[in-house]
Computed example of a mutant assay.
Amino acid sequence: MTSPVIPTVRPARPRDVPAVVAMVHELAEYERAPDQCHLTAEQLTSALFPTALGGDTPSPAPALFGHVAVDEHDQPIGFALWFLNFSTWAGVHGIYLEDLYVRPTARGTGAGRLLLATLADICVRRGYRRLEWWMIDWNPAAGFYASIGAEPMSEWVPYRLSGAALHDLAVQATPAGTRSAD
Rank of each mutant, 00 (worst) to 15 (best):
E132D: 14
E132I: 14
E132L: 14
E132R: 15
E132T: 15
W133Y: 09
W133M: 11
W133K: 14
W134V: 06
W134Q: 10
W134C: 10
M135Y: 00
M135I: 11
M135N: 06
I136N: 03
I136V: 14
I136H: 07
I136F: 09
D137I: 02
D137W: 10
D137P: 06
W138A: 01
W138T: 02
W138D: 01
W138F: 08
N139S: 05
N139W: 06
N139T: 04
N139C: 08
N139E: 07
N139M: 09
P140A: 10
P140Y: 04
P140M: 10
P140I: 09
A141G: 08
A141Q: 07
A141L: 11
A142V: 09
A142F: 12
A142P: 01
G143T: 14
F144L: 12
F144H: 06
F144C: 08
Y145W: 05
Y145Q: 06
Y145F: 11
A146F: 04
A146E: 10
A146K: 14
A146M: 07
S147A: 10
S147D: 00
S147R: 06
I148T: 07
I148Y: 01
G149P: 04
A150R: 02
A150L: 04
A150H: 02
A150W: 02
E151I: 11
E151P: 00
E151T: 13
P152C: 06
P152F: 06
P152V: 07
P152N: 05
P152S: 10
M153R: 14
M153S: 05
S154V: 13
S154I: 09
S154Q: 14
S154L: 15
S154N: 15
E155W: 15
E155K: 15
E155C: 02
E155T: 08
V157M: 11
V157R: 14
V157A: 08
V157T: 13
V157F: 02
V157I: 14
P158Q: 05
P158Y: 01
P158G: 03
P158D: 00
Y159F: 15
Y159V: 03
Y159E: 03
Y159I: 06
Y159H: 14
Y159W: 08
L161W: 06
L161R: 08
L161N: 02
L161T: 03
L161Y: 03
L161H: 02
L161F: 04
S162Y: 11
S162P: 01
S162T: 11
S162R: 15
S162L: 07
S162F: 13
G163E: 09
G163K: 13
G163R: 14
A164D: 12
A164Q: 12
A164F: 05
A164V: 11
A164S: 11
A165K: 12
A165D: 10
A165R: 14
A165T: 05
A165W: 02
L166E: 00
L166I: 01
L166F: 09
L166H: 04
H167K: 13
H167T: 12
D168R: 15
L169T: 00
L169I: 03
L169A: 03
L169D: 00
L169C: 00
L169Q: 03
L169V: 04
A170V: 07
A170S: 13
A170L: 08
V171E: 07
V171N: 04
V171H: 09
V171Y: 04
V171I: 13
Q172G: 06
Q172H: 07
Q172T: 08
